[in-house]
Simulated assay, not measured.
Amino acid sequence: MQILACQPGAVPSLFSAEGVVGIIFLLTVALVVTGALIAVSAKRLVRAVAGLAVCFTGLAGVYYFLLSPFLAMMQMLIYVGAVSILIAFGIMMATPEEQQTMGMKNRSALAGPLACSVGALLFAALTMIAVKTQWQVVTRQGAGDIKAMGMALLTKYAFVFELISVILLLAIIGALVLAQRGRN
């Protein structure tokens, strides 16, 4: 994989390799934001899960741009391929309820503005932290071969590897609970 680096102080042209890579990166970030907005604003649960899958797909693209193709592949396999599809099948196996929105009647009028203000404050705080932090370039360790990565997953990062399997187990149990509640 070739690493593209811009010269300090130079603005890359739109038609250069750096410009095209920047546009593709912005498109993947837009995919993440669009999928997240669909996931939180959809009125139907199936559309919300589709938005979640789109968000996870864009996040895999961001991982790829962070020079971690293995993590991007795992994102696609675990979250898009397993968790999102499992939730979608759980929703589809459940019998549809009446056409009423449960819980929407008791919502406070301040819930939306309060959530937006908390989100804006969090975004501002994270932006200030990102701007004020002195970011250091980390040298890449190892060649990224699959054998070394497998050994690291099963020795040094075994806990994280097992934690991913617990997340998958919880997703399976959640889908089964959704399906069982819908049938009763």
Rank of each mutant, 00 (worst) to 15 (best):
C6Q: 10
V177I: 01
M76Q: 11
R183H: 09
F70Q: 03
Q2D: 07
L168A: 13
I85R: 08
M92G: 10
F70G: 04
A179F: 11
E162I: 06
M92H: 10
M93N: 15
L4N: 09
L45R: 06
V62T: 07
K156D: 07
T133C: 07
M151P: 04
T155E: 09
F25G: 01
M151K: 12
I146A: 14
S16M: 02
L169A: 15
E97I: 06
S84L: 02
M73A: 13
A130L: 14
L176D: 02
Y64G: 09
P113V: 04
V166F: 10
A179E: 05
G182W: 00
M93H: 14
W135K: 15
T57G: 13
V62R: 06
I78E: 12
L170F: 14
V166D: 03
A48W: 01
I172D: 09
P12V: 01
T95K: 15
I23N: 02
T34R: 12
S13R: 03
G174H: 04
Q134H: 13
A125L: 12
S108E: 05
A148R: 09
V54P: 00
M151V: 08
F123D: 04
R183K: 15
A158W: 11
R181Q: 14
L71W: 05
R47C: 03
F25A: 02
G119S: 14
G81R: 01
L122K: 08
V177Q: 10
A94N: 02
L14E: 05
L59R: 14
V33F: 03
A39E: 01
Y63H: 00
V32F: 00
I38P: 08
F25E: 00
R47G: 07
S108Y: 10
V137M: 06
T155V: 06
L122V: 07
A120R: 04
S165P: 09
V46G: 07
L153V: 06
L121P: 05
Q2S: 14
V80S: 11
F70W: 09
T28Y: 09
V29H: 04
A124M: 11
P8K: 15
A171S: 15
L114M: 13
I3H: 05
G150L: 08
I85D: 08
V20P: 00
P8I: 10
A94Y: 05
I24H: 08
F56M: 09
V21Q: 04
P12W: 01
A53M: 11
I173L: 15
L126A: 13
M128W: 13
T139E: 10
S68L: 13
A30E: 00
G81F: 06
L66Y: 02
R47D: 07
T57V: 06
R44S: 11
V54R: 02
